[in-house]
Each structure stands twice: as C-alpha cells, then as structure tokens.
Amino acid sequence: MSKKSKGYIPVMLTPFTESGAVDFAGLTKLTELYLRAGAAGLFANCQSSEMFNLSGEEMLAVTEHVLRIADGAVPVVATGTFGGPVEKQADFVKQLYGTGVEAVIVITNMLTEESESAALFDERFGQLLDATPGIPLGFYECPEPFKRVLTAEQLKRFVGTGRVIYHKDTCLDIEQIKAKLDATRGVADFGLYDAYMVHAVESLKAGSAGLSCIQGNYYPELIVWLCNHYDNNESADQVAIVQQFFIDHMDIMHAVYPVVAKYFLQKRGLPISTFTRKNAGVFDETVKKRVDLFYLQFRQLLEQIELIPNGMMLS
C-alpha cells in the first residue's frame, strides 16, 4: 500500500437493500466510483462498512466481491480481528487473507480491553504475529467501541518486524502523526494513512503516505485531487480553499453517518439505498436540508477549482 506518490484509500461503505441484505450490485457501482476517482487502494470491511453489523460470512463475501471488481487494479485490505481469544482472531485473519487481500487489518481495540495495558497489547499482538506466519498486517485505530491509539515507539517496533505494512491513524493530533512518521521513516513497504482531514495538508507534507477518511465517501475525487496537489505551488490558493472546505463541513459529514454519505451519493447519481444496519441517528428533514446545502456548496467548489469528476454523474 506504500507508494512514493500520495494516495487515497477509501474506507468503503456497504450498500444494503431496503430489506437489509447486502446490495452487491450497489457495491459494484460504489467500488467502480472509487476506482474512477483515482483511489490508490481500497479498505473493505471497515467501520464505514458497518463491519460490526456484518456476519463473518458477509465480511468474507463483501471482501471477495470488492476484490473481483477491483480485479488487481489496486491493492485491497480488510479488517480481520473482532475480539475473543487470539487464536480465534488468528483463524479469521487466515480466512480473510485467503480471499486475496494485500493485508489484513488489526483493530487496535480488539486485542485488549480499554483498561488493559499497552504492554499486554504488545504481548498479544506478538501472539497474533506468531499465529499468522507470513501474512502482512496493518493497524486501524478504530474509534468504536473505544479508541486505542498506538505510540510512535510501538508502531516503530511493529513495523520493524517486517509484517506491518499499513496504518490507518485516527489520533487527530498532528504532532503524534509526525512522531509516528519519524519513527517509521525509510521503511519502504509501510505507509501511514491519516484519517483526520482537519490537518490533511500538513500531514501529507509531513510524510504521510496518503489519506483514508470518511470524506471520501462523499467526494473521493476531491481527496485524490488534494493528494495530487497539496505541495504544488501553482495550486496553493486552491489547496487552501479545499482544506478549509473540509474543516468547515466536518460536522455535517459526521452527523447521522453513514446515512448522510449514502444520501449524498444518491444525489450524485449512485443507485444505492440509504439503509444502514447500525443505529446512526435520525435522518430528519433538518439534517436532509443541511446535506442538500452541503451538496450545492460541493458543486460550487468543483467549479472554483475546475475539477471535473471522472465518470460520476452530478444531478
């Protein structure tokens, strides 16, 4: 997943039918949207995918479907640890890796309880490494059910094993990001992807391999644009405008998520339902009007920076 050029790794949604079944036709369209937008990879089966509301069989089926649609165009990673004894988690890691993913992602809050120590986490991750020989792994600092953020020292040790190639960071602290980048600098087969768009440009300039954020479930091509232009002096004014756009709309993009993201994509012409299995909150008329306004502002931004989406309808 690590590249010299910066990349956007979508944290993929899972489309559902109105009856609550996985909508594989919608998943095809969604995967194609990310690819057309220029995604450097795909993160299937993550929190945005409602992974905690999928069965093990559904996780495998969704991941396999994404792999089929991607057809080798970009690497695919997927989450594979969901609590319980390390041996049980290792078994599912092996199943998921068998689908053909580039790496299996370890949720940092699933190896130890919130009250347990970092030392115990290190011990259990070592056990997971031993139980999954040869399988490339990554980390995801998932916010639910609680957030366990790795330190720079921990990440350096884990990357030093040669087995950890990907890290989705959610610490929300640019100084911690810089420390982690300094600790892992020069490791060719590792990439840190930042989830926090408030400091996206600063993170990219500090050395992040790219971005992996929920904002890409509204307008993936805008994240790709930022990865391609963040350090272009000729685009500096536009980059500042885009960065501020992310900051200004942070609240609405997190409100009743992922329902709002699916509604936004509907407005863009993607044929998917807004159905979600998780209790995301109430998508009422007030929220809808806010998203409608947000959509108009997005259209205006595209005109301002002269970005034409690749193959995505704009109704």
Score class of each variant (00 low, 15 high):
residue 128 L to I: 14
residue 129 L to V: 15
residue 131 A to F: 01
residue 131 A to S: 13
residue 131 A to P: 00
residue 132 T to K: 01
residue 134 G to I: 04
residue 135 I to F: 06
residue 135 I to Y: 04
residue 136 P to R: 10
residue 138 G to F: 05
residue 138 G to V: 05
residue 139 F to R: 07
residue 141 E to L: 03
residue 141 E to T: 10
residue 143 P to G: 10
residue 144 E to P: 00
residue 144 E to A: 11
residue 146 F to E: 07
residue 147 K to S: 13
residue 150 L to R: 03
residue 150 L to F: 09
residue 150 L to S: 08
residue 151 T to P: 13
residue 151 T to R: 12
residue 151 T to D: 15
residue 153 E to H: 05
residue 154 Q to S: 14
residue 154 Q to R: 08
residue 154 Q to P: 07
residue 154 Q to M: 14
residue 156 K to C: 10
residue 159 V to H: 06
residue 159 V to Y: 03
residue 159 V to W: 05
residue 161 T to K: 00
residue 162 G to W: 03
residue 164 V to I: 15
residue 166 Y to E: 01
residue 167 H to G: 00
residue 168 K to V: 05
residue 168 K to P: 08
residue 169 D to F: 09
residue 171 C to E: 05
residue 172 L to V: 01
residue 172 L to Q: 10
residue 173 D to T: 06
residue 173 D to H: 10
residue 173 D to G: 08
residue 174 I to L: 15
residue 175 E to Q: 13
residue 176 Q to V: 01
residue 176 Q to D: 12
residue 178 K to N: 07
residue 181 L to A: 02
residue 182 D to G: 00
residue 183 A to I: 01
residue 183 A to E: 09
residue 183 A to V: 01
residue 184 T to C: 15
residue 185 R to A: 14
residue 190 F to N: 03
residue 191 G to M: 07
residue 192 L to A: 03
residue 194 D to V: 02
residue 194 D to Y: 12
residue 198 V to T: 11
residue 199 H to V: 01
residue 199 H to D: 12
residue 202 E to S: 09
residue 203 S to C: 09
residue 203 S to N: 07
residue 206 A to Y: 05
residue 207 G to N: 04
residue 210 G to P: 03
residue 212 S to A: 14
residue 214 I to K: 01
residue 215 Q to L: 03
residue 215 Q to H: 12
residue 215 Q to F: 12
residue 216 G to T: 04
residue 217 N to F: 03
residue 218 Y to E: 06
residue 223 I to E: 12
residue 224 V to P: 02
residue 225 W to G: 05
residue 229 H to R: 12
residue 231 D to S: 14
residue 231 D to T: 00
residue 232 N to I: 00
residue 232 N to S: 13
residue 234 E to S: 13
residue 234 E to W: 00
residue 235 S to H: 11
residue 235 S to Y: 09
residue 236 A to R: 14
residue 238 Q to G: 00
residue 241 I to W: 12
residue 242 V to H: 12
residue 242 V to A: 11
residue 245 F to K: 04
residue 246 F to C: 09
residue 246 F to N: 10
residue 248 D to Q: 11
residue 248 D to Y: 08
residue 250 M to P: 00
residue 253 M to F: 02
residue 254 H to P: 00
residue 256 V to Q: 08
residue 256 V to K: 04
residue 257 Y to K: 07
residue 258 P to V: 14
residue 258 P to Y: 11
residue 259 V to S: 09
residue 261 A to R: 06
residue 262 K to H: 09
residue 263 Y to N: 06
residue 265 L to K: 04
residue 266 Q to R: 13
